[in-house]
Amino acid sequence: MRLIQILLIAILLQSCTAPDKKINGVSYVAHRDSITQKNIDPLLNINANYAAIMPFAMVKDLAHPEVNYDAERQWFGETITGGKQYINTLKKNNINAMLKPQLWVWKGEFTGLLEMKTEADWLTFEKTYSKFILAFAQVAEDTNTEIFCIGTELEKFVAARPEYWSKLIKDIRKIYKGKLTYAANWNEFEKTPFWEQLDYIGIDAYFPVSDSKTPTVEECLKGWIKHKATIKQFADKYNKPILFTEFGYRSIDYAAKAPWTVDRIEENVNLEAQVNTTKALFEAFWKEDWFAGGFVWKWFINHEKVGGIDNNRFTPQNKPAETLIKEHYKVN
């Protein structure tokens, strides 16, 4: 009888335990320099509890079979040594990390279109990509990094070589003992074949949710209904939490129409559009128990020199959206 009572008390206590705090993260852009406390304080100010560290490897073009990383000419934050320094400095401030090694194709071409022309090239590409990813899996393990992202927006690579990805995940697990995800583009995640092998369903959440010049929160919430239903279906299907490996909007007109747009037009700053779209995303997802949180795109280390009210790029820094994020992260 006493054993039953103890079990009942344990169940009751467990049911009363508050859910884990959401991942309130930023995508922390690599820099030529190491980071110091000065670079961390703005993250603490917005109540961030996670940062995505993003070292890069270089690929010459969309069909080039070699991945080059940790080169002497790369910025410090893109290297193995830099990744470790960033993560360890964040951890001293109780900020957790997701290590998210990524590919950069010459001239900024979209990584989702990477596709080799021959079997020999595929094998070379796989070999060099594995070397890159496994090197940073070791960094993640050595630094006790909480989450490791095995790839970002590699739709054609994933579609063409699913067996490779399954083996890669197994190889990563031999090195790294933490949680794994993959950052699928918003229109890619439904086709990604290996969610069962990962811990989070990762989505770069650039879903179109409004065609308005200055979308309202209500318009965006309405635009999220269909997408949200599909996302929840995946959480239920795989019994995995959803993680927005990237989310965010530019401070520009029509910010929610094609949120992935990165063209360099300098006009049409719209700070209200960035606030409303971000607020709607928070309202749509952050209270859901199947949603783990996410990483706002993007955050630069030299806080005082970036963003601002004349800037129409993604960063919320020194804009009204920064205040919104600070208030939201404080209570969630």
Rank of each mutant, 00 (worst) to 15 (best):
R2N: 15
Q5D: 14
L8C: 13
L8G: 11
L8V: 12
I11R: 13
L12M: 14
S15G: 12
S15P: 07
S15R: 12
C16R: 11
D20L: 14
D20V: 13
D33M: 05
I35W: 03
Q37S: 13
L43D: 03
L44D: 06
N45W: 08
Y50H: 03
A51I: 01
P55M: 00
L62S: 15
A63Q: 15
D70E: 07
E72A: 14
G77R: 04
G77D: 02
G83W: 03
Y86D: 00
I87W: 00
L90F: 00
G112S: 15
G112D: 14
M116C: 12
F125R: 08
E126T: 10
S130Q: 14
S130P: 12
S130N: 13
F132A: 06
I133T: 05
A135G: 11
A140K: 08
T143Q: 00
E146K: 09
E146D: 14
F148V: 01
F148K: 03
G151I: 07
T152H: 07
T152G: 10
E153R: 10
V158I: 10
A160C: 11
K170Y: 05
I172N: 01
K179S: 10
T181Q: 02
Y182F: 07
E188Y: 05
E190D: 11
F194C: 02
W195G: 04
Y200E: 00
Y200H: 01
G202Y: 00
P208C: 14
K213R: 11
T214M: 02
T214S: 04
P215V: 11
P215D: 14
L221K: 08
L221N: 09
K222H: 13
K226E: 15
I231V: 11
K237T: 13
Y238K: 10
L243N: 05
G248D: 14
S251Q: 09
I252P: 01
A256C: 15
K257V: 12
K257R: 15
P259H: 05
W260H: 06
I265G: 15
A273H: 00
N276H: 11
L281C: 06
L281A: 06
E288W: 10
D289R: 12
K305M: 12
N312F: 09
K319Q: 13
E322K: 06
T323S: 10
I325L: 12
H328N: 09
N332G: 07
